[in-house]
Design a protein around this nucleic acid. Structure first.
Lengths: 259, 259
DNA sequence: CGTAACGTTGAACTGTCTCAAGATCCGTGG
DNA sequence: CCACGGATCTTGAGACAGTTCAACGTTACG
């Protein structure tokens, strides 16, 4: 019934049982962007997209840049929500836990994604770095104050939220009704399309997360994920030079399985 | 893409194979609200909440009221998105289909809920009436035009979207990691809290949807849903005077099972 | 070179689904 | 008023997909 051994403690993790967790060890606030937002590479991807100079300046005035090492936590489910974030580099996972340790990952975030909105002033999920991560961090109160003057910002957030909602519904269909192989195929297709959207090649897909993260994202065990990879490989749909690199050999068949 | 037929034809259904389906048989545009929005009972629940008189007037100018009979369809997944809706009475189900007919219900909507935002101008899910339903319908173009003048409206929608997103994540946790009994318990608890929020009694909960809808919402079969109900009943947690009425006998235990 | 984390594979188990039959409720018509 | 048919729900028995438990392989790193 329960997937008890939900692993979680990882090396270098600034987790609950690390006495220094409060200090977010390894987290660094830094300023290494000469020219500021104006020179930001990912402006086009993020909420900053198509904002006026005045708006950008207002955002820039209240942001702090931060770095997180792999498996470090940005915040825990239930923490009082103080900040919102814009991911400028790396991959993040959002997850929720049941009291016995079963975990569900609700999404992987990439460069350009936005996170942090909460309900009743508490985060409803945990956010952890999968890879090395860089974010722009804003105090929620300051961020929301900008809405008054820049409705465009809120408009952009609503568009993003609608999109996330549609993705969440796709994921519900996946979790509730797809077989393990279908789940994995859908997952890989989505990773590919996201990579493509960022100008990366879509065929040798690089998966930054491990099998355990994939399992908890797809509602499976790591063994079933591994077996599904093996099945797709034996069927000639994929090649796996290493566990984190997927070469698609037969896109048509992958698509047939995914939808 | 959508497999329209998917078992689900129900008596009185205005489905695809009904020759009059294009006309939405039984759908009635009506005006039976003397006094208009000003007199609307559910203003406090809906997006209209706390809008100025001017804003309400603008909304009222572009709205059409409509009625749908049980199992009638408001729109199908993939339809070009022309309208957004505010549900003023009854219960609605949102669902997505796989090509072979497997269905996932992504949510049940109640009085006061808002629906219709789409991606790329097409609806991403199907919306059907569970009970008799009444809605206020707005043309999307006209509705969005209001954002320019009334940012408050967009603010309200963002708040709703954030909330829906949090609920969607709860549902992912449910679908991916909970056992059938836990799923049913969580479902009942949520129905109870929603009923309570609308001033209805929380203990004899009325479930407007059938077992098949519950199954497709929880990612189970109807048989497993039925067996889970039976289990909760035999354990003394519930009573079931009839299949659509749930009396909670042991709330503590229900809560323990749900989370 | 040894150890630990991660991934893969195998064998057995078990929970959920599938298939099938019976029970219940409701509207309709004899 | 009661019999009938259809839809929905419940219950049972058996099959099977995915999990659990366990061992082994691989890679990275001190």
């Amino acid at each position: 019934m329960a997937d008890q051994r939900s692993t979680r403690s990882q090396p270098g993790s600034g987790g609950l049982f690390n006495p220094k967790a409060q200090q977010r060890p390894g987290t660094v606030a830094f300023r290494d962007l000469p020219g500021g937002c104006a020179a930001c590479q990912i402006r086009e991807l993020a909420i900053c997209q198509a904002l006026s100079d005045e708006e950008i300046a207002s955002l820039e005035a209240i942001l702090t840049q931060q770095r997180y090492a792999p498996s470090q936590t940005l915040f825990y489910e239930g923490d009082p929500a103080q900040y919102v974030f814009n991911l400028t580099a790396g991959t993040l996972r959002l997850s929720k836990l049941l009291s016995d340790g079963r975990r569900q990952i609700t999404g992987f975030l990439r460069t350009g994604d936005f996170l942090g909105f909460a309900r009743d002033d508490a985060y409803t999920y945990t956010a952890e770095a999968v890879t090395q991560v860089e974010v722009c961090r804003f105090a929620i109160t300051e961020f929301e104050a900008l809405f008054q003057h820049f409705p465009q910002l809120e408009h952009r957030l609503l568009a993003r939220a609608s999109n996330e909602l549609a993705e969440a519904q796709d994921q519900m269909l996946l979790l509730g009704r797809k077989s393990p192989t279908e789940k994995l195929a859908s997952f890989l297709l989505r990773q590919m399309s996201k990579a493509e959207k960022m100008g990366e090649p879509s065929s040798p897909v690089r998966l930054p997360m491990g099998r355990s993260d994939i399992a908890d994202y797809l509602g499976l065990t790591i063994e079933t994920v591994s077996r599904s990879f093996t099945k797709l490989r034996k069927d000639g749909v994929l090649e796996l030079p290493d566990p984190n690199t997927v070469v698609v050999r037969d896109l048509q068949r992958l698509e047939d399985m995914g939808e």
